[in-house]
Design a protein around this nucleic acid. Sequence first.
DNA 1: TACAATTTTGCATAATATTGCAAAAATAAA
DNA 2: TTTATTTTTGCAATATTATGCAAAATTGTA
Lengths: 249, 249
Amino acid sequence: MLKEERFNHILKELKSSNKVFFENLSKELRVSEDTIRRDIDHLSKSGLLVKVRGGAMSPSVNPLSFQDRTGLFSDAKKVIALKTQQLLRDVQTVIMDGGTTLLAVAASIPIQSKLRIITNNMALIPILAHHEQVDIIVLGGMYNRVTQTNLGIQTALEAQKYQADLYLMGTCAIHSSKGLTAAVHEDGELKKVFMKAAAQTAVLSNHEKLETVEFFNVTGLSDVDTLITDLPSNDARLNAYRPFGLEIL
Amino acid sequence: MLKEERFNHILKELKSSNKVFFENLSKELRVSEDTIRRDIDHLSKSGLLVKVRGGAMSPSVNPLSFQDRTGLFSDAKKVIALKTQQLLRDVQTVIMDGGTTLLAVAASIPIQSKLRIITNNMALIPILAHHEQVDIIVLGGMYNRVTQTNLGIQTALEAQKYQADLYLMGTCAIHSSKGLTAAVHEDGELKKVFMKAAAQTAVLSNHEKLETVEFFNVTGLSDVDTLITDLPSNDARLNAYRPFGLEIL
DNA sequence: TACAATTTTGCATAATATTGCAAAAATAAA
DNA sequence: TTTATTTTTGCAATATTATGCAAAATTGTA
């Protein structure tokens, strides 16, 4: 029996019952459990199934194409996304970088909005598929599978060529004395470029990111124009940031 | 017995049972397994079957030959895609532009391939999500919803910064006297840049595009190194292109 | 037809892939 | 925490595939 026939057997069984077990497959296909284990390993690397303890399961639906089902976003992100809409009403050109918060923002943009969005965030594209009035300018670079963003020198060089009204900054750590910091060097540098390219910078942050620090400095808080969190704007936990003169939404 | 007769026998058997074994074929056709192996090699390079350990399978039943969840790809595109794989074995860096044919090519790249892909084709990204050894360099620009590609001056400027071993050209019209032409101006200009950036250019084309002309000139056929269609390489409809000294797969 | 050049074929051998086993490591359960 | 179970890793035996080579067959040319 060919290896690929075993693969087909496994996938067929997975299709009908949604879960397969090493033990059963080993008996059905008359090979050792090790072989089944390796088969499943192979199939999982191809994304055709996901390994679980004792066997494998069908992969969860649509990994990349449609994240715009709002149920996928946490309440905190939805709150931030809705607050952000008021900033988008008065601008033409917006820079948006990485992070799922910005996906939530994009998902809540009204379908008839007229906007130009400059981004290195590839996950944004399918979300904006039906916004025919939204122009998307993609910033190229080395694609990062984990963050689904383009990064690198090339991305920064491209970003410098544009002028935007607003920069919506997604992922970063915020600290009242250390300012904004990023976990990835290239991402941190890119954020600096984005700030220069935009007339106004708004930082979007879950309250859990407040008073945290990452390794790479981006900027001080006085360079930020607006801070948007999931907290009420008068929440005490935001007091530390009020002296910097930024607008808190 | 002629080689062509063996081919026919193999393909016939493949059609009826979806799989063939070297051992059986060797006995049936009274030649050594080596000869069968070479025959299968040839048919595999012609995109008519996929080799597996011990024999070969028809591409449609091999779960690993295509990552085609949607069943979107036509037989012609699958043949072209499988033929194209032989070019990818010896290169490091490949430029791929727009068109669904190139999506089929990407979908048939083995999961363990090591490759660097330079592209303005955003639809390529989710297909290559599980190819951890494939680096993707995205070329930025104005995103076009219909073609799912980035276009414009910016895209061309970026493309000029790279050197590639191979350029796989997707959508274009081919004519024996008019050469290659494109339907969209920016796309045509970009194709010229891609050709300059790559050491070798291969044009992928459905046979229905042969002897058709679009409005924007790209280049003459003598600048093309390889032509890959869904037709057998000795098909009479390809004769018009043979004088240009390009390799026809 | 005869001869040279090319292609095809089968074989030996080296390289590679698959399989099952056993020990070590990691994970879940008590 | 300890214990039981599952998973990973390394290994050796076996099977398959790729490669170079020489003989045979085929093709083209005079």
